[in-house]
Design a protein around this nucleic acid. Structure first.
Lengths: 352, 352
DNA sequence: GTGAAAGCGCTAACAT
DNA sequence: ATGTTAGCGCTTTCAC
């Protein structure tokens, strides 16, 4: 008969060796104060020698608590989500929670699968970004299932979230562009259906342009969420009067737009201005540095995590609207048309 | 007496409602072929109606398999690690495995804590990057504990890993610099103790320079792994004859070096050349595009995952050395000193 | 201060 | 083709 592989010890072995009951070993790890000092020392010593640590699966099953939360994000290639994860994970870890992460690639089906897998693992709560909060059934499903959850980056009137105010943020950037003398701008996105954020930002930009009496903001949809097409850009710039500034719905897109414009022989910002949205650290290292809207991604992750952990303890869910800011880089030309009481622009402005 | 909260159903409830035993319900999910078609349909129907799915914690405890692996990475702010995660997670997911992720911030203590937490959760294997594979006790500990594991980015003669050949990769870049006419170069890193990769790359660069009869490669250690200090850079450039090219141990550092040089009034590559190591997608969008060594990060993650899943099935661990390449961008000046039979450089070269 | 025993949800022999 | 049963490792009353 083959040897059974030297399976990991359980509290049973430790209890035997220590000459105590398994309950006492359990207490040694969970309520050490209840034990006599030398009993505790004895058990600790033996556990230490064997490198024994309580099996969390057994504990989870018995206690009904896995101390694990799940995260579902579109991708980590966008540093915005990577930072958000770091914030969320740190906060969770500080409370003794571990994190399971899945990327869903902006695909609603994969989002649903990921959520299901995580629920199967008995995570105690979920942090997620869905492609489109209004269209996704996921948040409602989670709500009905009484599973704690918090959306990140999505805004919703019906579900708890952590996000900036995308409309206002876009509006603030448009105001900044206006202050720099821009009157005709275009808003660039990937496929709109894939992102409610992009849609909100577009709306915010348009509303602000209207309010400021600027020309109607054109919407240019690029093939990819994160990559511009030079030929398409060229065509769009030729059709009708070219905008003086291109407002991109995210920083990665902005960077690729700038690169594409360069291949078309257009200099940024001398020939045309470009700005982004996200405030990824990297933007500051571009030449010139990227003008963009800053979202506090790490804070968003942290806030979502704190909110979620609260819910797990029974606290009522809330939404957090975090502060955005406009980062003045060098990709937007000032004085394109300075008839509108231009003020000296600071390097960074923060708004509620 | 308060109502017990409507706890999630178990196979017991489903079995009762279906009028079958719990074993049959279990089979409906695990070996449906064993059941009579209508029994299966009946059970599936009931499960469906209640949204019932088997509790993986119960299953894990009983079967001894959590179908979960753990990842410990230094940070996700470096897109290299973010991509590696995506590759690893995708591969794991395709095999029905979930992933727990922790970032350890290049801190050996946090690495050890993270690994312990993951082991407590009974992950079946671990993928990790340690600050310094030679100095870390972690891999040996895992080995002794018979826990399947694979290092990523670290190279080691004693442990399974997935990585490029850092020495050769650095050497290839130095050859490229030499072909561009550079004779005096400096290698820039963060604190060396924090990264065995940086050390290997430095060695590779130095060996190659010696071989090619170039001047000895200076080593400039920046305060941060990922950020240059302009003042320090200026001082170093003043001390002795300035190098014509700065080889940075990672792309993020390269980008920040370029930004710092610019503030010093130095143009890249006209006044001084800079190159990096990593091949993050973003480098291609910089202006000019970053010359760098490409590592296939997604492949590294995928290879590590495949290797690990194999180990979990009992396959012998292996190491994967993946192909690197030199990406010729625009941050290295050609013809700085073209006495060495310069060949026309292709846009991308790949080496074993 | 410590022990005995029940049981969390599930799988896998072993029956039938 | 389906049922019975014995745990997996742990926490938690309830005794003593």
């Amino acid at each position: 008969m083959p040897h059974r592989s030297p399976t990991r010890l359980s509290i049973v072995q430790i209890a035997e060796e220590a000459g105590v009951s398994i309950a006492t070993v359990s207490r040694a790890f969970n309520q050490p104060a209840l034990l006599k000092a030398d009993t505790l020392a004895h058990i600790s010593d033996i556990a230490q020698r064997h490198g024994f640590r309580p099996n969390r699966v057994g504990r989870s099953l018995r206690s009904g608590s896995t101390r694990t939360i799940g995260l579902v994000l579109p991708t980590l290639s966008n540093p915005v989500f990577a930072e958000c994860f770091e914030g969320a994970e740190q906060c969770a870890r500080e409370s003794g929670y571990s994190v399971m992460l899945t990327v869903a690639g902006y695909d609603p089906d994969r989002e649903a699968e990921a959520v299901q897998a995580l629920i199967d693992h008995q995570v105690e709560g979920l942090i997620l970004t869905v492609a489109d909060a209004a269209r996704s059934a996921l948040p409602d499903t989670l709500h009905k299932a009484r599973m704690p959850y918090v959306l990140v980056y999505n805004e919703s009137s019906r579900h708890p979230y952590a996000s900036v105010d995308n409309r206002r943020a876009a509006a603030d950037m448009v105001r900044h562009l206006a202050e720099c003398g821009h009157r005709r701008i275009a808003f660039l996105t990937g496929p709109l259906t894939a992102s409610d954020r992009a849609r909100r930002r577009l709306h915010g930009a348009r509303a602000q342009a209207r309010k400021l009496g600027m020309e109607e903001v054109a919407h240019w949809a690029m093939p990819a969420h994160t990559g511009a097409d030079a030929a398409q850009l060229q065509a769009l710039l030729r059709d009708g009067p070219a905008p003086t500034a291109l407002f991109c719905s995210n920083d990665l897109l902005a960077a690729s737009v700038i690169a594409a414009l360069l291949t078309l022989g257009l200099r940024v910002p001398q020939d045309i201005s470009v700005c982004g949205f996200d405030g990824m650290d990297f933007g500051a290292l571009m030449t010139p540095p990227l003008t963009t809207v800053r979202q506090p991604s790490r804070e968003i992750g942290r806030a979502a995590s704190a909110n979620l952990l609260g819910q797990i303890q029974g606290v009522t869910p809330r939404s957090d609207r975090l502060l955005h800011g406009v980062i003045t880089g060098g990709t937007v030309a000032a004085g394109a048309n300075t008839q509108d009481s231009p003020r000296p622009s600071r390097t960074r402005k923060t708004s509620p």
